[in-house]
Simulated assay, not measured.
Amino acid sequence: MGKKLVVFVLVALLSFTLFAQGQKEAVKSNLIVIITPSHDNPFFKTEALVAEETAKSLGYETLVLSHDDDANKQDQHFDTAIASNAAAIICDNAGADATIGAVRKAKEAGIPTFLIDREINETGIAVSQIVSNNYQGALLGGEKFVELMGESGKYVELVGKESDTNAGIRSKGYHEIIDQYPGLRMVARQSANWSQTEAFEKMESILQANPDIKGVISGNDTMAMGAMAALNAAGMGEVIVVGFDGSNDVRDSILAGDIKATVLQTAATNAIMAVEQADKYIKTGSTGLPEKQLTDCILIDESNAARLDNFMLK
Rank of each mutant, 00 (worst) to 15 (best):
M1N: 10
L5H: 01
V6D: 10
V6A: 14
A12W: 02
L13R: 06
L14S: 08
T17I: 15
T17A: 15
F19D: 02
N30I: 09
I34D: 09
S38K: 02
D40G: 12
D40Y: 03
T46Q: 12
T46W: 00
E47F: 06
L49H: 06
E52F: 07
T54D: 13
T54S: 09
A55M: 13
G59I: 09
E61M: 04
L63C: 13
D68N: 14
D70Y: 07
Q74A: 10
D75I: 12
H77S: 05
D79I: 12
A87C: 09
D92C: 14
N93R: 01
D97V: 08
I100N: 05
G101W: 08
R104C: 00
A106Q: 11
E108M: 07
T113M: 03
D117Y: 07
E119R: 06
E122S: 06
G124K: 00
S128W: 01
Q129V: 10
N133P: 03
Q136W: 09
G142Q: 12
E143V: 08
M149E: 13
E151D: 14
S163P: 01
T165W: 03
N166Q: 07
E176M: 02
Y181M: 03
M186N: 11
A188W: 01
Q196H: 02
Q196E: 15
M203L: 13
Q208M: 13
Q208T: 15
A209F: 01
T222E: 15
A224M: 07
A230H: 10
I240R: 03
L255N: 06
D258Y: 05
I259G: 05
Q265S: 05
T266Y: 11
A271Q: 07
A274T: 04
V275Q: 04
Y281C: 10
K283Y: 13
T284V: 05
G285L: 03
L289P: 04
Q293H: 10
L294D: 13
T295N: 11
I300K: 02
F311T: 01
M312G: 08
